[in-house]
């Protein structure tokens, strides 16, 4: 880690002139990273939309086979975690170390809860033969091909989202340890700030995934 050559507790890196410049740069960097993430998921959303347009009936049947209750619960879990993340960022601004740790831990627990529910859901898919492959079967459609495409998209999209959640959980763990060690103060809280941005982004992706995969065309199925 960079030494504190320019101040007592402030981690100003040598390429920057001021903390403000450093914070601006970090935040801008995170926003640009999130734009790349949007493009990344965008490719998948596009593929999903194309196929839903090709096979509306199959996608409706496949969508209604999803467990919307777990999906909705997970949506709630993530929304709560965004709230606790905001509280952690606020606590960081006020320099309340214990409260930062409290809310970061809460966020972490909610994140892990989401992943647990997700794992349970995937497991059910295996039992129901809804995993693409030779054993795949979905009731209510006669052509299994497009149904497999739906579930291929489902696993690719939720899998990638879950991977981002795992990364998020890793970041939160690191933040908790760093906060505990007293790295962050009211004057330097950029990592908490930009981790918050990342966490909200992953949350928003789910907000799009949930209706696309679980809710759209339920009435048709």
């Amino acid at each position: 880690m960079a030494s504190d050559a320019h101040g007592e507790t402030l981690a100003l890196r040598e390429q920057f002139d001021s903390e403000e410049q450093q914070k601006d740069a970090s935040t801008l960097g995170m926003w640009i990273f999130l734009i790349t993430e949007i493009m990344f998921f965008g490719g998948m959303f596009l593929a999903y939309s194309v196929y839903r347009n090709f096979y509306p009936h199959v996608f409706a049947v496949a969508s209604s086979s999803m467990n919307a209750i777990i999906g909705a619960t997970n949506t709630g879990v993530l929304l709560c975690s965004s709230f606790t993340m905001v509280m952690a960022v606020r606590a960081a601004q006020l320099g309340q170390r214990k409260i930062i740790i409290l809310f970061l831990v809460l966020t972490l627990i909610l994140g892990i809860a989401f992943l647990g529910l997700k794992a349970y859901e995937w497991n059910v898919k295996f039992e129901e033969h809804h995993v693409p492959g030779p054993a795949f079967h979905l009731d209510g459609v006669d052509t299994q091909g497009p149904a497999q495409i739906f579930f291929s998209m489902y696993f690719a999209m939720t899998g990638l989202h879950a991977l981002h959640m795992v990364v998020g959980v890793g970041i939160l763990t690191w933040l908790i340890i760093a906060t505990y060690k007293g790295r962050f103060t009211a004057g330097y809280m950029t990592p908490v700030d930009i981790a918050g941005l990342y966490w909200h982004f992953v949350d928003i992706i789910w907000i799009f995934l949930f209706p696309l995969l679980y809710l759209i065309d339920r009435h048709l199925g």
């Binding site: 096979y55 009936h57 006669d142 052509t143 091909g145 497009p146």
Partner: peptide
Amino acid sequence: ILQPTAKIVAGYQPLMPTFQ
């Protein structure tokens, strides 16, 4: 022929099996 239920003619049931 290959995906009979993709487009069902009005007035008919989706009875046809796929010939894929």
